[in-house]
Design a protein around this nucleic acid. Structure first.
Length: 424
RNA sequence: GUCCCCAUCAUCUAGCGGCCUAGGAUACCGGGUUUUCAUCCCGGCGGCAGGGGUUCAAAUCCCCUUGGGGACACCA
């Protein structure tokens, strides 16, 4: 039975690097029908916070990374004490300056058999004795992680490769404690555009920030998975496909740069594939965010209109923030125009003809609207080209967008008419 | 500085000795579709870090150089 864990320390939000590590563990567990454990490494009482634990679990839930077992490292203090005492009793550790030190044998070398990196050797001289229990009685990371992983019968330790140099010390501890070694797999790091380890100074690294910016969790998961993992030429994956296809063999060994441009593209792919009802539901908070649109207005907008609007506009949206700003035109609020519309008298006549024509339309469908407008323009000896851009600007505030008749239909007769009158 | 890891287009990557004149994706640049933009379709640009080996054959294996990253705490 495969058992893996993600072990974040709750000293801040979940960043994308941590999320990727969690994701790979989770995919590995789900693919192999194993167990995924979330273990909060909260032994650093100074820096650990409840708020941080909440942020981390919320981010994981948002991403859909579900855990089967949950632990807090501090709950295991007696086990740590017990194990440390055992090493002391067996003279594998000694006390110095009030701290307990693990004795590293002077001769020999230690080899990690890493599932991703192959064999990596360290000579004992490089390691030196190290502290396992501080003089204040608390335990050091390298020690508790081994005790906990052994107790929890972790079979595969999948973590960032910034941990490789910790691994030989940990292996020594496994041996001293007479516990079976897990399989190690060290994931390559995620880098910023400047090729240094991804951090706050590279911009947004909080997973939850991506939710706030209008990204879909499945897009985030897809993107994170493709950072280091691949499956032939395929780029877009559903969560289920990822679970089905994920293997450690598919994981590369070189660091990857976090490319937000590609994240946007993947997000767009998932927005295009998502269920429209969900799109409408998810875009709502973005539309309400800093706008004239109220909750009531949203509810009165009409489900069908919102659905149609979302369908028409989502091909142009990389994020929900994009979609929210374009879907505003469905609401009876003033629209900001990208450019001032100044019409010649001739064009004003055309617009007036269009307004009049709209009144003759029975059911306000794209097809009917088109028919009425084309007919009206033809009678004036004009074509759609002559006035389309101005009409679009009047009713949507922008020169680009979905088909004019589709837009008029979904916006609705009254709103279209009043917006057209504004430019006369 | 010491130790460890990594090295294919700008970026993510396929490639695990012959299928490679190195494939896909993003980005970028054209063209088509569209009233416009986007989507979509077609095309283009662009890379095996360098040098030695091994082999009939190397992007693939080995060594060196260079470059990049990481670790060097009584932090996790």
């Amino acid at each position: 039975m495969i058992r893996v864990r993600f072990a974040p320390s709750p000293t801040g939000y979940l960043h994308v690097g941590g999320a990727r590590t969690a994701l790979f563990n989770w995919l590995f567990a789900r693919h192999n029908k194993g167990t995924f454990i979330l273990r909060i490494e909260d032994t650093d009482q100074e820096r650990s916070t409840e708020a941080s634990i909440g942020e981390i679990t919320e981010a994981m839930q948002w991403l859909g990374i579900s855990w089967d077992e949950y632990y807090r490292q501090t709950e295991h203090s007696k086990r740590h004490q017990q194990a440390a005492q055992e090493l002391m009793d067996r003279r594998l550790a000694y006390e110095h300056d009030g701290a307990w030190w693990f004795r590293v044998p002077e001769q020999g070398k230690i080899t990690i058999h890493d599932a991703l990196l192959g064999d990596i050797s360290f000579r004992h001289e490089q390691l030196k004795d190290f502290v396992i229990r501080r003089s204040d009685g608390s335990f050091v990371y390298n020690f508790v992680v081994v005790v906990d992983d052994a107790d929890m019968r972790i079979t595969h330790v999948i973590r960032g490769d910034d941990h490789v140099t910790n691994t030989p010390r940990q292996i020594l501890l496994y041996r001293a404690l007479e516990k079976p070694l897990p399989q190690f797999a060290h994931l390559p790091m995620i880098l910023g555009p400047d090729r240094t380890r991804l951090s706050k100074r590279h911009g947004v690294t909080s997973v939850l920030q991506y939710r706030r910016r209008g990204f879909l969790p499945e897009a985030m998961v897809n993107f994170l998975a493709r950072l280091g993992w691949s499956y032939g030429d395929q780029e877009v994956f559903t969560r289920d496909q990822l679970v089905e296809l994920f293997t450690l063999q598919g994981v590369g060994s070189s660091a990857a740069v976090f490319d937000e441009v590609k994240l946007h593209w993947i997000n767009q792919q998932h927005i295009k594939a998502a269920n429209l009802d969900r799109i409408v539901e998810l875009v709502k908070p973005f539309a309400l965010k800093n706008d004239l649109i109220t909750e009531t207005m949203w509810d009165q907008a009409g489900k069908d209109r919102l659905l149609t609007g979302a369908r028409l506009l989502r091909d142009r949206s990389k994020t929900f923030a994009d979609l929210a700003s374009s879907i505003r035109i469905l609401f009876p609020i003033p629209i900001e125009k990208e450019e001032e519309v100044v019409l010649s008298q001739h064009k004003k006549d055309l617009v007036q003809a269009i307004i009049d024509a709209l009144d003759t339309v029975q059911e306000f469908t794209p097809k009917n609207v088109q028919e009425a407008i084309r007919t009206a323009l033809k009678e004036k000896g004009a074509g759609l080209r002559d006035i389309a851009h101005d009409c679009r600007m009047a009713i949507t505030g922008t020169g680009v967008g979905p088909g004019l008749f589709d837009m008029m239909s979904v916006i609705g007769r009254d709103l279209v008419k009043s917006r057209l009158k504004e430019i006369l």
